[in-house]
Design a protein around this nucleic acid. Structure first.
Lengths: 213, 213
DNA sequence: TAGATTGTTAATCGATTAACAATC
DNA sequence: TAGATTGTTAATCGATTAACAATC
């Protein structure tokens, strides 16, 4: 099926397509053309057709795309039908927010554990799970074989925790720390969420807009 | 000074440069060449020189770049010396995490208020500030003139809150909701942090790595 | 001066957009 | 069939990399 290999630029657009298609689906829309979708999303119709064609034609000439089918196809390309086992490391505000806020089950994951290095918070229940002390990580790992780790820890703690997890055999990091994991472990999938980078970019945008008034 | 207009691709790399330069600076490193920096960051030296030259030459031929000066220049390009007044709307886990976790003062902002629509949480103190009820937003706005809003509210609530804020004169959104603000208000700077999009992209990466084993 | 490294131009690469023949 | 819209190729645009003269 896969005609071209999809580039990361294409992959990064898929979740957005998925979102808009979810919306259309929930509104009962059955078919959509690349032109209609392009107007809704602020893209060109050309780009949409190119993107979808990386994975083989989902559309029908003269008709457009079937919303439900396209939605499912994209979900399956992203791998949302998987249930990769995830642990959160770091149960500060951010870790807690991620644990309680994200719907992992619809995004290809299953949260199976939360860890912290503070004795004072271990045992607290979040999302029906006790916060475990980090010292129990190895035993937990061997018993439950998590696939990926969500790092909600500060910069300083990241190198050591990352090393431990890699040694244990972790298969990916969703990384909220400022530490640049991808440089250290190029073979392991890393998706970074650098909030402070985003905030600085935002600052630039606001500054620009203010200056051009 | 600005030779070319810097593209968004360049701007989005600046916070990362800023981070690495902070680190070098704290280690007491005085000068750095584009080659050294490229090795540390996993970029090409060419790209680094091109990037910096969008804003006029900070370097010295045969020597390299002065770490402190470069750090300051980039900070000032990003506008980190500003103190844009920010309010958080939505005091759930995510809003609280952002409020307590982010160092706004070093990123060009100052947090001046937190709002929520739940009576039950108003009055709670976060970062020395009481959570205010959303009904007091207009009065607060007129008194304190916030520059930007940080939206930590669900998809459904976003359109209405965004409209109210735009009508009051907000100058930018750091948007954590899934709602696509930029389509509705193309003239207002928006920086999106779509965590669930990021999680889905992560899912794809993990899936790919698993398949290629 | 000689060596190093920038600033900058030119070449390459990749991503986006435009155009249109294929076909439902 | 005629109209619509895809899939796909070609053209354009932008971003990255390579090369090298300028110069500290």
């Amino acid at each position: 099926m896969a005609r071209h290999d999809a580039s990361m630029s294409v992959i990064k657009r898929l979740p957005r397509y998925y979102r808009f298609l979810s919306d259309l689906k929930s509104k009962g829309v059955v078919r959509v053309s690349s032109r209609e979708l392009s107007e809704k999303m602020g893209l060109t119709a050309s780009q949409i057709r190119q993107d979808f064609n990386c994975f083989g034609g989902f559309g029908q000439q003269g008709y457009g795309y079937n919303v439900t089918q396209l939605h499912e196809e994209i979900g399956s390309i992203l791998g949302l039908n998987f249930r990769f086992k995830a642990i959160i490391v770091g149960a500060g505000n951010l870790g807690r927010a991620i644990a309680t806020h994200m719907s992992f089950e619809h995004r290809g994951f299953k949260l199976i554990g939360i860890f912290d290095n503070k004795e004072s918070v271990t045992g607290q229940i979040i999302k029906g799970m006790p916060i475990r002390h980090i010292s129990g990580l190895e035993d937990f790992f061997n018993e439950n074989k998590p696939d990926v780790a969500i790092l909600c820890i500060p910069y300083n703690a990241a190198p050591e925790v990352a090393k431990q997890l890699v040694d244990l055999g972790i298969k990916g990091f969703w990384n909220f720390s400022h530490y640049d994991l991808a440089l250290q472990y190029p073979q392991i999938p890393v998706e970074n969420v650098h909030l402070s980078d985003s905030l600085m970019t935002f600052c630039y945008k606001v500054k620009q807009a203010t200056e051009n008034e």
